[in-house]
Amino acid sequence: MVKNNMILKMFLDLIALIIVSFPLLAIKLWASPYERGFFYDDSSLALPYKDQTISEALLAGLGFALMVATILIVEIIRGVKGKSVRDKYLCGSEIPGWVWESYTAIGVFTFGAACQQLIVTVAKYVIGRLRPHFYDLCVPVPTSMEQVERDLGYVQNFTCTGPLANHNTMLDMRLSFPSAHSGFAMYCAIFFIMYIQVKAKWRGSKLMRHVAQFIVFLAAWYVGLSRVTDHMHHWSDVAVGFAAGAAFAIMTFVYIYKPKKYLARDSYETERTSQPEFLPRPVLMRT
């Protein structure tokens, strides 16, 4: 029965991840963003087009690699110290407790990341905000100047004449708000910070853990700033992306990963090992 429950749990976890991931894939493959217009004299859309410093694939690879490596290292160390869960049995094979703990942590992190990216992507396609390099990339020509004058400079119908204007660049041009790069980077950073705060305990140094947390947070901060300096996003896009990523990381860690059980277990272990290992001296009996 225990074996069947574990297999069922893993199967349901996979189904839950597919349920969240499929809409994200479907939106990117088949959806079209809202075709928002622009004001003819909007200087916030007049920045030059630049190649991005950090690509989406690079960020995703680094983010997942960081978390998977961190979780495996921490759980292996906890397993060696006897702080992991008991070994599991699956299909007749014994699975070390640290493997199951790693599976749980990586699964929760991946699920939260998929939810966070789905929310951000839906907002991108519903809002359809133009990127700061819109003029330079599109070189828009209004269909009717008379209509522009009647709408007080607002252009709704136009044609892109820029040399780099094609279907893919024009679709991506409308996906400025919010910043998915900033959201994912901050999600990884906050999840990392909370994870090692709860599960990575090292008595050798008081500050080394916090240095690692600060470095990862600084890296996420740099990702967001690079999106502004690369003219890929407005500052408000990055701010909302940071907020969404941090919020999803906190909710995922607190309400799905549920760190209280690990804090309680570590507290019990500390209390048990801190007790003296010697017996009190016996009281001399009167003769």
Rank of each mutant, 00 (worst) to 15 (best):
I196R: 02
T104N: 07
G92H: 06
A247D: 04
G63V: 08
K83W: 11
F217K: 04
I19M: 11
Y34R: 09
L25Y: 09
S21W: 10
K201D: 05
V99I: 14
P282D: 09
A189F: 03
F64H: 07
L66S: 07
A113H: 06
G204Y: 12
L12A: 09
P259Y: 06
L58E: 14
F39S: 05
K206W: 07
T121R: 09
L12M: 11
K201P: 00
V85T: 10
V139H: 15
L175V: 01
L58Q: 13
G128S: 05
S93L: 12
S267H: 14
M251K: 09
G97M: 12
G128N: 03
T161P: 00
K124Y: 05
Y222S: 14
P282M: 10
L59W: 11
F214R: 10
E146W: 04
T252E: 01
S102D: 04
M170C: 07
K83R: 09
S267K: 13
D237T: 05
L24A: 03
M67I: 15
M285S: 13
F111E: 04
E277P: 02
T121S: 07
I256L: 15
A247Y: 12
L207P: 01
L164C: 02
A219V: 09
S274E: 11
G82T: 05
V216P: 03
F11R: 07
C138W: 00
H234Q: 15
A180M: 03
A60V: 14
I19L: 14
F22P: 01
L171S: 02
A180Y: 04
L130V: 00
M145Y: 13
M10K: 13
F184H: 02
M285R: 12
V198H: 07
L218M: 13
P132M: 00
S179F: 03
M170Y: 03
P282H: 07
F64L: 15
R86V: 08
T121W: 02
M1S: 13
E269Q: 11
T229C: 12
Y262L: 10
H210K: 14
G82I: 08
N168P: 00
E277A: 14
V228A: 06
A189T: 07
L218I: 01
V2W: 09
S55C: 10
P23V: 03
E149I: 08
P163R: 08
I215M: 09
G204P: 00
Y40A: 12
G63I: 08
G92V: 07
A105K: 06
K3T: 11
H234S: 10
L14K: 05
F111K: 02
K201C: 06
S179C: 08
A31I: 00
A123M: 15
A246E: 09
E94F: 01
G92C: 09
C138T: 06
L66D: 04
E269I: 10
G224L: 04
I250R: 04
T273V: 11
V20E: 05
V80M: 09
T229W: 15
Y268G: 12
W30F: 12
K261N: 06
A219L: 14
E75A: 11
